[in-house]
Amino acid sequence: MTTYSAHPLRSTLPLVLSLFMAACSQSYVVLLAEDDGRVGQVSVTTPAGTTLLDKASEGIEISGQPGKTFAVDPQRLERDFGAALASAPRKPVSFDLYFNKGGTELTAASAADIPKFFDEIKQRPAPDISVIGHTDTAGSAEDNERLSLNRAKATAELLKKNLPQVINITIDSHGEKNLLVPTPDNSAEPRNRRVEITVR
């Protein structure tokens, strides 16, 4: 280690570094509000420590000093993340179809909702869907296992037949184990006779 060159280096290096950082050549994380305005939390952990972000548009340089957060203005957000934000797919959406007692026939109200749900699916590129069948607690658990699967399958068929653009459907069934409205066993409850459809 030579000492004579250390002094000029020591004095100029931080300056050069800080100029470099200021020229937006910086790795950072920024917390964003969700569509509904809610703001969650993210933590950023480095060997130097952990910083928690909990305010909208609050940012932290990843390899910077822990806790030293800053506000990210809309212009900078657009400059750095405009392309990424513009390419965000629509958020997945879920809806429920309800069934008449004991079978795979849709209630009149749910049958009337079908066109609305189909429109939502058609607006999405390469939609993939999961369907989960449920029953109420009337009847045996085994029968309800079968019935919930049949409801899910019937729903998947309906989707496949009408929406060729759907690229994948996964089918699942929860029988009477996952009630929307909690009830004792052997209770007929129309709101529990349903299939949850999630469209991505």
């Binding site: 050549s25 910086q26 790795s27 950072y28 994380v29 920024v30 917390l31 964003l32 509000a33 969700e34 703001v39 969650g40 939390q41 993210v42 933590s43 950023v44 952990t45 480095t46 972000l53 990843i62 390899s63 957000l77 750095d80 993340f81 990424a84 934000l85």
Partner: peptide, 19 residues
């Protein structure tokens, strides 16, 4: 994960830029 730190998520929306 990023080259210099780890982002932990508590149910939210964020953006990260890595140079």
């Amino acid at each position: 994960n990023t080259p210099t730190g780890i982002i932990g998520v508590r149910g939210t929306r964020f953006a990260v830029k890595v140079e």
